[in-house]
Design a protein around this nucleic acid. Structure first.
Lengths: 213, 213
DNA sequence: ACCTGAACACCGTTCAAGT
DNA sequence: ACCTGAACACCGTTCAAGT
C-alpha cells in the first residue's frame, strides 16, 4: 500500500472523528445521528461508512483517540523513580482531566453506552487498562517503599513467585491500589457530571473526611 | 374520581413499569424498545401510551419507583440521635444497594441517559436529593459533635443565622459531607459496573489507603 | 478506491376506530 | 375511559451507480 494513501485515510478518519466529537459535545450520544455527523463533516452517508463499518466503530475510534487524558507525566514520574503517593497520582490525573477540558457528561454517556455495546465496552477496558498500567507504574516506587525497604531493580531477574506467574507484594499492592484510584476518579467524574463542577482539592478533602482521615 | 379507578390506573402503571424493568435488566436502556415492553407486558402500544405520555416519562417512573435503595434505616438512625459517622453511612448505603440487587450497569446507563434527557435528569436529581437529605439527617449528630459540643435540639427555634437563611456550622458540614458520600457511592457503582463486582469493605479499605488513612 | 444518495428495515409516537 | 393496531416521520445501514 502506498504511504500517501494510508496517510490520507488516517487523516479522513480523524476528520470524521473530530466532526463527530463536536456534535457529540453539542448534542450528547443519544441525540447524535449519523445524519448530524454527515452535515457537520460535509461528507455523505456512504463516505462515512467507507471509513467506519458502523456507528459503534466510529464511537470506539473517538474514545481511543480523544477521551484518554494525557498519561505522559504520570508515566515519566514512574520512570524517574520519584515517590508518587496514590493520592498525588489521583490528584494529578483529575487535574489533567480537568485541564484537558473533556466533558464529564460525555464520558458518563459513553460509560452507559459501553454497558450495552460490547465493542465500546472493549475499547473502554483497553483505555482503562492503559490508565491502570500507567498508575501502577507511577506508584511503583511508593509501593516498594511500603512493602519493606528492599527495592529490587525493575529489570532484575526474579525468583520463584514471578516465575510461577505470581506478583511480588509491591506489584500486587500497586495493582490493587490502581483500581481504587480509578474508582475515586470515576466518583469525581460521575458526581461532577450529575451535580455540577467541583474543585479537585475540595473533592479530595471531602472524601478523605468521609473515610476518616 | 372514583377510588377504584385510581387504584386500577396505579396498578396498571406499576404493571407496565415492572414489565419495563424486566426488559431493561435483560437488554439495557439502549436496546429496549417500546415493542419489547409491549411484548413483555402483553398489552398494546396504545395502551402503554394511554398510561405514559412517552418513553422518558415511563423511564422517570421506573427510576422513582424502583431505583432508589430503601432509606428507612438511614432515616431512623438520624431520628434516634445515634452517632453515625460518614463512613458508616456510606457503608450502610452501599450494603443496602448491594442487597437490593439493583443492577449497577442499569444505574450507569440511566445516569448516561439523564445527561441528555432533561426529564430524566430532573428525576435523578429528585431521587438524589432525597438520598442526600437522608444522609444529611443521619450524620447530623456526628456533625454536631464535630462542630463544638453544643447539641441544639433539632426542633428548637433558632437565632439569627437560620432566620437569615444561612445554615449553622453543623448543618453546613453535614450537607457538604453528604455530597462526598454520594460521590464515593457513585465511584463504587461506576467502578463495579465497568470492572466487575467488588466487596464493599475492600472498596472502603482501598479508597482509604489511596487518600492516606 | 472513494464517494453519492435513494432505498430498506426498524424505531417512537399518533390517531381514527372499537369496546 | 381504556384500548387496538395501522400509519407516519425518522433512524442506522446497504448498495447500485458514478468518478
Amino acid at each position: 500500500m502506498p504511504k500517501v494513501t494510508d496517510a490520507y485515510r488516517e487523516a479522513r478518519r480523524d476528520e470524521i472523528a473530530r466532526a463527530a466529537l463536536r456534535v457529540l459535545e453539542r448534542n450528547g450520544v443519544r441525540d447524535t445521528s449519523i445524519a448530524d455527523i454527515v452535515e457537520e463533516s460535509g461528507l455523505s452517508t456512504g463516505a462515512i461508512y467507507s471509513h467506519f463499518s458502523n456507528k459503534v466503530e466510529l464511537a470506539r475510534y473517538v474514545v481511543g483517540r480523544f477521551l484518554l487524558p494525557r498519561l505522559d507525566a504520570l508515566e515519566a514520574a514512574g520512570d524517574r523513580d520519584e515517590i508518587v503517593t496514590p493520592r498525588q497520582a489521583l490528584r494529578g490525573m483529575l487535574t489533567a482531566f480537568s485541564e484537558a477540558g473533556l466533558s464529564t457528561t460525555l464520558v458518563l454517556q459513553f460509560w452507559g453506552e459501553a454497558m450495552v455495546e460490547p465493542g465500546l465496552h472493549d475499547e473502554m477496558l483497553r483505555t482503562a487498562g492503559r490508565l491502570r498500567a500507567a498508575l501502577t507504574h507511577a506508584i511503583g516506587p511508593w509501593a516498594r517503599a511500603q512493602t519493606g525497604g528492599a527495592v529490587p531493580a525493575p529489570d532484575a531477574a526474579s525468583a520463584a513467585p514471578e516465575a510461577s506467574g505470581e506478583l511480588g507484594p509491591a506489584e500486587a499492592l500497586a495493582a490493587a491500589t490502581a483500581r481504587s484510584i480509578v474508582a475515586l476518579a470515576q466518583g469525581y467524574i460521575a458526581n461532577t457530571a450529575v451535580f455540577g463542577p467541583r474543585d479537585v482539592d475540595e473533592y479530595l478533602a471531602g472524601t478523605s473526611a468521609v473515610l476518616g482521615c
